[in-house]
């Protein structure tokens, strides 16, 4: 029942032989060894598993790997350029937008999707957008500040 499933992950063409029931997050973590994407709740609530599929943020625990076949996936490992952090990652470090760090990959990936749509974000817009990302440390205050700063940095980098 297994078959080869190919896609582009973080700019590289990859193939792994998996079953139809293999979730995208399992494909990434267990077959490609990209363990930066986390599984928190496994019920599409918490957002620790957020990655981008064809430029949009999705929950990788609620999509089959075969559904993403032929697509372009970006995970948290694909954001930094070598040792240079992505502006959103840099903003999370600068504003201390994390405590235990478990939700951070999903928070950053979700935030990058938001920032691609708009760079001048109000606190309210960020909090609304984070509907699907849960931080058990409840450190939202600095996460929100980091996302506002990261989005502004991404906006000025583009300009």
């Amino acid at each position: 029942m297994t078959s080869p499933v190919s896609m582009t992950v973080n700019g590289k063409a990859v193939t792994a032989t998996v079953e139809p029931r293999t979730l995208l997050v399992q494909y990434l973590r267990e077959h490609l060894g990209l363990t930066g994407t986390h599984v928190g709740c496994d019920t599409s609530q918490c957002g620790a598993c957020v990655v981008h599929l064809d430029g949009k943020s999705i929950k990788s625990c609620t999509i089959l790997a075969v559904q993403a076949a032929g697509g372009t996936v970006t995970t948290i490992e694909g954001l930094a350029k070598g040792s240079e952090l992505h502006p959103m990652q840099a903003a999370f470090r600068e504003h201390h937008g994390l405590q235990c760090g478990f939700c951070t990959p999903g928070m950053v990936m979700s935030a990058v999707d938001l920032a691609q749509r708009k760079s001048d974000l109000s606190e309210h817009e960020v909090r609304e957008w984070l509907e699907g990302n849960i931080c058990r440390c409840t450190g939202y205050h600095n996460i929100v500040k980091a996302i506002q700063a990261g989005a502004a940095a991404m906006g000025s980098a583009k300009a």
């Binding site: 957002g47 957020v50 929950k59 999509i63 979700s110 938001l114 509907e131 699907g132 990302n133």
Partner: peptide, 9 residues
Amino acid sequence: IGDPQVRNR
């Protein structure tokens, strides 16, 4: 509906 990631799917 749901959250942004659910709305994307």
